[in-house]
């Protein structure tokens, strides 16, 4: 139950969506782009989200694209996580998507919603950071395309009125050796204690984390330590974990000490599998 009134808008094009956002804002009201809607609805109930108007972007054709070209994979921001899971155009992303929430919820949760949402796990971002993907963003001055690293730092950095339209992935990343491990406090659904994604590009390992800090991240400093192959695996992991961008989360999902313990084990398994594999 949303405890306030709002109006619902369903634009059929990118320009219509952007114009609607601007017009509503000019009236002194708060618009919000609306994708799967699951976060907007559930957080409104807790008074953690407010909007006078929601602009549903799921019916914009560009947001629904799933296109595999030889030199580019395009994923629309409104694709549901189960669509990505079933089509499996990028196995590491499909694996990460398949571990978010539960199957029915994933029929609704979208890729763009998971990347742009305020719930801080944003687990599908991990493969996207590892694949150095590009993001296509719509705003008042049309479309702009950037490396995800220019736009995503802990969370997506969009200008007011902008929204994420598509993600573009170089297909070379879709066939690299990879591992994705999600550990929960209990059970097989829901938020992670920690999640780690790793790929091997030629000899180098790339790694990204969720549930370790209150934002998902990939860190060059962590990767440098993990790739210091002249050292034993245990030393590399200890040094890598000294490079985390913030102290490890300590919350109801798990203590910092427990997360560190789990993280060390995951990284050990991953390094052994990918370096020997």
């Amino acid at each position: 139950m949303i405890p306030f009134d709002l109006t619902y808008h369903r634009p059929s094009s990118i320009s219509e969506a952007v114009q609607l956002f601007e017009q509503i804002q000019k009236q002194g009201k708060t618009p919000l782009y609306y994708n799967g809607g699951t976060e907007i609805i559930t957080l409104s109930r807790l008074n953690l989200v407010f909007a006078d108007a929601v602009i549903d972007i799921k019916h914009i054709p560009e947001c629904r694209v799933l296109d595999r070209k030889q030199n580019e994979l395009t994923l629309g921001a409104a694709l549901s996580l189960t669509t990505i899971e079933e089509a499996n155009p990028f196995p590491l992303l499909a694996k990460a998507a398949s571990e978010v929430a539960d199957h029915t919820a994933r029929n609704q949760i979208t890729l763009g919603g998971n990347v742009c949402g305020q719930i801080f796990y944003r687990e599908t971002v991990l493969p996207l950071l590892l694949a150095d993907c590009d993001v296509v963003i719509a705003g008042k001055s049309g479309l702009r395309q950037h490396s995800i690293h220019e736009v995503f730092d802990q969370h997506i950095r969009l200008e007011p009125g902008e929204f994420l339209v598509q993600i573009k992935v170089d297909p070379i990343y879709t066939t690299m050796p990879h591992i994705h491990i999600k550990r929960r406090k209990q059970g097989n659904v829901g938020y992670p204690l920690v999640t780690v994604s790793m790929i091997k590009k030629e000899r180098d390992l790339r790694v990204a984390f969720s549930g370790v800090c209150p934002f998902p991240f990939r860190s060059q400093a962590v990767e440098e330590q993990l790739n210091a192959r002249h050292l034993p695996i245990e030393t590399r992991i200890v040094r890598a974990l000294q490079q985390l961008p913030e102290p490890i989360l300590d919350d109801v999902e798990g203590s910092a000490e427990y997360r560190l313990f789990v993280l060390k084990n995951i990284l050990t398994d991953m390094l052994i599998a990918l370096e020997e594999g």
């Binding site: 809607g37 609805i41 929601v54 929430a101 029915t104 029929n107 609704q108």
Partner: peptide
């Protein structure tokens, strides 16, 4: 969105009706 007691089918797909307008 956690318990599934509200699940209905929309165009044949299971959806949690507490999380959709």
């Amino acid at each position: 969105g956690d318990c599934g007691a509200c699940t209905v089918l929309i165009d044949g797909t299971p959806i949690k009706s507490c999380m959709i307008l």
